[in-house]
Design a protein around this nucleic acid. Sequence first.
DNA 1: GAAAATAACGAAAACGTTTTCGTTATATTT
DNA 2: AAATATAACGAAAACGTTTTCGTTATTTTC
Lengths: 340, 340
Amino acid sequence: MKPITLQEIADTLGISVSTASKALKDYPDVSQRTKRLVKELAATLNYTPNSFAVNLRTKESMTIGLIIPEVVHHFFSSVIKGIIYQAEKKGYLVITLQSNESYELEKKQIALLMRKNVDGILISLANQTANFDHLKEVIEQDKPLVMFDKIAKVLPCSKVIINDRKAAYTATKHLVDSGCKRIAHFRGPLLPQNSIDRFLGYKKAIEDHDIQYDPSLVYICEDMSFEEGKKYAQKLYEEHKDVDGIFVNTDLVAIGAITQLKELGVKIPEDIAIVGFSNWFMSSAITPTLTTIDQPGFKMGKTAFKRLLKEMKKKKNDEKTDPKIIELETSLVKRDSTPT
Amino acid sequence: MKPITLQEIADTLGISVSTASKALKDYPDVSQRTKRLVKELAATLNYTPNSFAVNLRTKESMTIGLIIPEVVHHFFSSVIKGIIYQAEKKGYLVITLQSNESYELEKKQIALLMRKNVDGILISLANQTANFDHLKEVIEQDKPLVMFDKIAKVLPCSKVIINDRKAAYTATKHLVDSGCKRIAHFRGPLLPQNSIDRFLGYKKAIEDHDIQYDPSLVYICEDMSFEEGKKYAQKLYEEHKDVDGIFVNTDLVAIGAITQLKELGVKIPEDIAIVGFSNWFMSSAITPTLTTIDQPGFKMGKTAFKRLLKEMKKKKNDEKTDPKIIELETSLVKRDSTPT
DNA sequence: GAAAATAACGAAAACGTTTTCGTTATATTT
DNA sequence: AAATATAACGAAAACGTTTTCGTTATTTTC
C-alpha cells in the first residue's frame, strides 16, 4: 500500500541510501554485484522514485504548460495533439489551459504555470491580448517560452508560425489565375495578427494583378462561424452581383458561404469561386469540395514542442538561446470550389 | 533572478522559517504584527512557495491526469474543455494524454501518471481496451479514478455516462412516431459498449413497436467517418429501396449519409428520415438540419471532475467512497431531417 | 615494501516546505 | 505570591531523493 522508498531497499539490503540511489542510476563507483542486487529488489518491489522528491532535488518536473485560446477547435486541437504526442515521446507531460480568448484569464494562467514551476511554456495568444507584460515576465525569469500561430512579433522568444500573408496571397492569386476579376474577402476580427496578415495577403495579391482594391468587398466575421458565412454570403449576393470570387478567412465560414450560395442558386465555381483556409476535414466532404490552404496543425504542435525542448535543454546547461522564428510551409489544396 | 525562499524572508525579518511559514498561513500562534510584516515582505518580494517542496511535504500536487482516446474530436474536446474549466476553478491542473484508441498506450499512460503522483485520474477508454488490470491496479493503490463515456462496467469506480441505450431508443422511437415503417441503423464498431448500447436501444425500439428486426439493415461503420456515411447510404439505397428511416450512430456519419442521399435525389425527410447522435454544431448548419440526440460533453467533463474532486477530498480525510454511477440526461433535438 | 592509485561504499548536506513540540515570557487566576 | 493559562516564537524533524566528498580497503606501481 505505502509506496516503496530507497530507504527501505537500502535497509533490506544492508546498504546505504546513497549507494542504492547510485546503483539504480549506474554510477561507476558501485560494484556490479550491488547494482544487480538493488535493481533486482527494486524490480520485485515495484519501486518507482517519488517524483515530488526528484522534482525538488533536480528542480525540474518534466512537465510543460500549454495555453490555448480554445480547445474545441479543429485547428487548435490538432496542434494540441501534436504537442502532446511529441512531448510524451520525449518524456514530458503537458498541462493544458484554455484562455477562452480572454486576456485576463491568460494572464492568470501564466502566473499559475509559473507558480507550478513547469519547465517551459507553450502559448498561442488570446484574441484580446494586446499587452504582453505577463509574457515579458516569463522571458525575464528565464523560463523557456515558445509561441505558436497567434504570436506577438515584438516579444523576444521563439515562434512557430505559418506565413499567413503569403498563404493568403497564394489563395487569392489562385482566384485571379482562375479568371476571377472581382474578388471579395471574408476576414476575421480586427485584432489578431493572423486575420490582418491574411487580409494584407489578399490585398497585395489583387493589387499586384491590377485589380482595384475595394473596401466594400471586405466583410468582417467577428466569431468566424458557419452562420456568419451564410449571412455575409447573402449580403454579398445582394450588394455585389458582380463578384466572381471569394477568399474566406477560414473553412468553416467558407462552408457556410457555400451553403448559402447554393441555396441562392449560385453555381460554384462557375458563378463564384471560393477559397478557404485551414483544410478542415469537412472541406473535402462537402459539395463542391473546397479549395483551401492547408495549415499543418499537428506539425505545428510537434515543431513548437521540439523548439521548446531545445531551449529547455540549453537552459539546463546554462547556455543562452537566440529566439528563432520557424515558418512552416503551407500549401494550396485545389478542389472543386475553384475552376480547374 | 533566483526565486525567493521562506528562508530569505525569515532572515531579513530576523525571525525563523517556521514563523514565516505560519505567518503566511495565518496560524493562530503568530502575532498580528509579525503576520503583517511577513505578508508585506512576501508581497513586495513577489514570493511564491516552491511547489516542488510543497508537493513533497503535502504529498499532493493539485494535478490530475486525463486520458482520452482522441483529442481532435468534437465530443471529446468538449469534455476536455469541461474538465479543464472545472478543475481550474477548483485550483487543479490537468495533464492530458491521448491513448489513440490503443490499449498498449493507455496502459503505459496509466503507469506514467501513477509515477507522476497525480492526485487523481480521469479516463475514457480506448476502443481496443478489453483488459482492465491496469485500472484495477489504480483502484487497488487507492488512487481516485473516475471513468466517463467509454467505461468498463465491471470496474469498482465511479462513472459518468449517458444512457446510450435509452437515448438510442428515444431516437429510434422518434422515427417510428414519425411514421417510419422500415428503419435502418448505421452503427459503430463492435467493441465499445456505446455502439453496442445504441444498437440495442435501436433494436428494442423497433421491436417494441411491432417492427421486425432485420440484421441486413444494420451497417457497421468502422471509423465513423463522413465517407462511411456516404458509402453506406449509397449501399443502403441500392440494397433496400423500402427503407424510410435511419438512426445513425453519430452526427458526422449522418451528415455523410444526408449528403449522399441528397445527391441520389432522395428527399429528406419525406423519403427517408434521419436521426443522428451527438448534436455536433454542424448538425444545425447543414441542409436539412439534422434531428439528433444532444450529448452534453462539456457537462460530462465538469461532472466527472466534480466527482473526482469529491473522492480526492474523501481520501485526504481517510474516508472511503462508494463508487457512484452518474447518468447525465440526453435530449432529442428535433430538426428538419425528420417530419414534423 | 613503501607510495600511489583504484574500487566500493557511506555520511551528510541540500532542495524548501510544513508541522509538531518545546521553550520562553507575559498575563491571568486563586 | 504561587500556580496556571496564554501568547509568540523557534528548533528540528520530516518528506525522499541526488550528489559531493570522505573514508576505508584493496590493488597496482616503482
